[in-house]
């Protein structure tokens, strides 16, 4: 009995120290990335193309993972990464080396994703209003991809469904409203609230 308790105790201690080690490695990696990205950006601000290429390469990989985890896979993730890379380029003069890099980067990344979703919803509305015969291929698969994003999955169904139906499946607001059996204005309100909630979720995330 005492032996098994001892064994459990040492296993616990081992797991505890492994966890601490893992946590410490994570922290060290986090700080290393922070320092490296900050230094690369400072160098890019001075016009160093090689460092800038390295920075954008690392950031695009990281951003792809970041958006995929929150929005699911699909072309919208690519679009968000593209928008963010462009925004980083345009906003590079606003990065203050005395401040941490991540809050600067993720403020841009979050905003670009919210803008992209909002713009996409509007664009789909306009396109489908102008050409109602447009039918998107494989809507179920697209919706599934989008649903796999944990941030959207965390949205209440009443907000998630309107966003997915208009942004991914490609229905017009009238069609989506009919599908959900609600009025068009109620649908627009839900899309608006859904996007606002997404933004809040993003804002409350630790960096």
């Amino acid at each position: 009995m005492r032996d098994s308790a001892g064994a459990l105790g040492s296993a616990g201690r081992f797991l505890g120290s492994a966890g601490r080690l893992y946590y410490m490695q994570g922290t060290i990696r986090y700080e290393e990335d922070e320092r490296r990205w900050s230094a690369l950006m400072v160098s890019a601000q001075a016009g160093d193309q090689a460092d800038y290429r390295l920075l954008l390469g690392e950031l695009s990989t990281m951003l792809e993972a970041y958006y995929s985890a929150r929005l699911g896979s699909g072309t919208h993730v690519d679009d968000c990464v593209q928008d963010t890379l462009l925004a980083i380029h345009e906003a590079r003069h606003t990065y203050d080396p005395a401040r941490p890099f991540r809050p600067w980067l993720f403020a841009i990344a979050r905003r670009k994703a919210v803008d992209r979703i909002r713009r996409e919803v509007r664009r789909r509305e306009a396109t489908l209003d102008a050409a109602p015969e447009v039918v998107l291929q494989q809507p179920d698969r697209l919706a599934e991809q989008f649903d796999s994003g944990r941030m959207l999955a965390a949205l209440a169904e009443q907000y998630r469904e309107p966003i997915v139906l208009t942004k991914i499946v490609g229905l017009s607001t009238a069609e989506a409203a009919a599908t959900l059996n609600i009025s068009e204005s109620a649908l627009k309100v839900r899309i608006h609230r859904g996007i606002r909630r997404l933004r809040r979720m993003w804002d409350s995330e630790p960096l």
């Binding site: 001075a46 954008l56 380029h89 003069h93 203050d96």
Partner: peptide, 23 residues
């Protein structure tokens, strides 16, 4: 891929910038 092309274009467009003053 698409991101590599964008990165190439952005790197080509890179010019030294003057830091924005503190808000």
């Amino acid at each position: 891929n698409r991101h590599d092309k964008t990165i190439d274009a952005l790197v080509d467009d890179l010019a030294p910038v003057r830091l924005a003053p503190r808000p």
